[in-house]
Design a protein around this nucleic acid. Structure first.
Length: 437
RNA sequence: GACCCUUUCAUCUAGUGGCCAAGGAUAUUGCGUUUUCAUCGCAAAAACAGAGGUUCAAAUCCUUUAGGGGUCGCCA
């Protein structure tokens, strides 16, 4: 069982999406189930509606899940498990105040050592828990440190060993009784029997904690891990909300299509086994090798994304492409593809296609000639072939060379430059009266 | 500061001791084609982070220095 576990606390970005895609892809490759778990344990940060937004986005990328649930539904389970650890003395209640903990941190900082939990409450017992509960005083539950190194086998990074001190005695249940991220996450992974966890590198330091939790809960099945190198912006820093390109919403607005975004994300850090650069998700499932992903962070390259987007636009069905510009005509799709030689996104394509159908400006350098040609077209019979059309207009107008082609191009496309008019004509001839005006 | 990860052209990468005076793709530049701008074709420029080892032989193994990134919450 594989899983994607987003929190509904903000807009989904390309890093999240990459994780989702890869989990789905590996599940497909291994014939395993793929689960979506909405991690909504931080009530304050949850944003209404983000969960459905995430699900819609996954659907848009054809990442199909077998089941989905909200982590908050498991509140009772998490509490029960935490209490069990308390009873077994694998965890302890901690009544340290914020001030005390803050002082500890200050001290660690002053001494230039890493902050670790002081151990002040670690000998508190089950009786203390009962007393604390009756008194109504605030307390949290912490998990005791492991007694030996935690080793996690990462299929990308290799074996990583973590000392007990690094794992530390961390909080698993908050003052309000809700589980912390690491605890809820590990419990649910255990409960769902997740066999392979693929996530971002920023979770690397959480992994020993989560392994430790599963260990003390007596979970014996082995879990494989893969921590993906993070995606950097052009400045070489971790991509964040500040980088517009990280936002899927922004990418869609800019005219990038899902297939291209997916293709790019899969290519990033992984050129090794790809038999070709342009591919679809079903194709990638055939040959993608997660273990071959590069270990170092990769910079986001807008130029490459643009190239890939162009290639996917070329592969799109003609009629379907035309619907993106408000048509339902394969010829318009073909027309758009002609313009792919100078545009890479739907947004850029729009700036080429829409002016063709808008009223033209007859006041420019070639205005006079355009008027003459437009009048001729208005009275002319319909021509199927560009050659016969061209010959007819040339003859009737008496224009030739630049004096003919420039105004003709401008009249038909509203632009000075562009693809061959001979290629454009057959695709717009059924709209010729609207176009040439 | 501590801990962990990482280091080949501008960018993504190929490369697992000899096939590498390092290959591909994108981007860039030049030439050719094109009654336009482009596309396309051809070509060019462009990298093993530094220093020490090991070896007949190192991009590849070891040591070390430097750089980059991540994480150090009752956030996820």
């Amino acid at each position: 069982m594989l899983r994607f576990a987003p929190s509904p606390t903000g807009d989904m970005h390309i890093g999240n999406l990459r994780v989702a895609i890869l989990n789905y892809l590996v599940a497909q490759q291994n014939n395993e189930q793929f689960l979506v778990r909405i991690e909504d344990t931080d009530v304050k940060r949850n944003i209404e509606g983000k969960d459905t937004e995430i699900m819609m986005l996954l659907e848009k990328f054809a990442v199909i899940h077998n089941s989905v649930f909200h982590q908050s539904e498991h509140l009772n389970l998490h509490q029960t498990l935490a209490l069990r650890l308390l009873k077994e003395e694998k965890a302890f209640v901690c009544k340290c105040t914020d001030e005390e903990l803050e002082a500890d941190r200050e001290e660690a900082k002053a001494n230039r050592v890493a902050y670790r939990y002081s151990g002040r409450c670690q000998d508190l017992t089950q009786d203390d828990y009962v007393a604390l509960k009756e008194s109504g005083k605030p307390f949290v539950v912490r998990l005791k440190k492991p007694t030996s190194d935690i080793i996690n086998h990462d299929v990308i990074k290799g074996d990583i060993s973590t000392a007990p001190n690094e794992v530390d005695a961390f909080v698993i249940l908050r003052t309000d009784g809700t589980p912390t991220y690491n605890f809820a996450c590990a419990c649910d992974d255990m409960l769902s029997n997740i066999s392979f966890i693929i996530r971002g590198e920023d979770h690397l330091s959480n992994t020993p904690k989560q392994i430790h939790i599963k260990n003390v809960l007596g979970y014996e099945n082995e879990t494989k891990y893969a921590h993906l190198p993070i995606i950097l912006n052009s400045d070489g820093k971790k991509m964040s909300k500040k980088d517009s390109a990280s936002s899927l919403k922004w990418l869609f607005e800019e005219g990038f299509v899902p297939d291209a975004i997916l293709n790019y994300l899969l290519l990033l850090g992984n050129a090794k086994v790809a038999p070709k650069e342009i591919f679809t998700l079903p194709e990638a499932i055939e040959w993608f090798d997660l273990t071959k992903i590069s270990k170092s962070p990769a910079k986001f390259d807008m130029n490459k994304l643009r190239f890939i987007n162009r290639e996917h636009l070329k592969m799109m069905d003609d009629r379907q492409l035309s619907t993106l510009f408000g048509f339902a005509d394969a010829d318009i799709g073909k027309l758009a593809k002609l313009y792919l030689e100078e545009a890479s996104t739907i947004k850029e394509l729009e700036t080429k296609i829409l002016p063709i159908f808008r009223p033209k400006d007859f006041t420019g350098e070639w205005g006079e000639e355009m008027r003459v040609i437009a009048d001729l077209i208005f009275d002319a019979p319909a021509f199927d072939e560009f050659d016969t059309f061209k010959t007819y207009i040339m003859k009737k107008s008496g224009f030739e060379g630049k004096k003919f082609f420039k105004p003709l191009r401008y009249l038909l496309t509203g632009a000075e430059n562009g693809p061959e008019t001979s290629d454009i004509y057959p695709l717009i001839k059924s709209y010729i009266l609207e176009v040439a005006s």
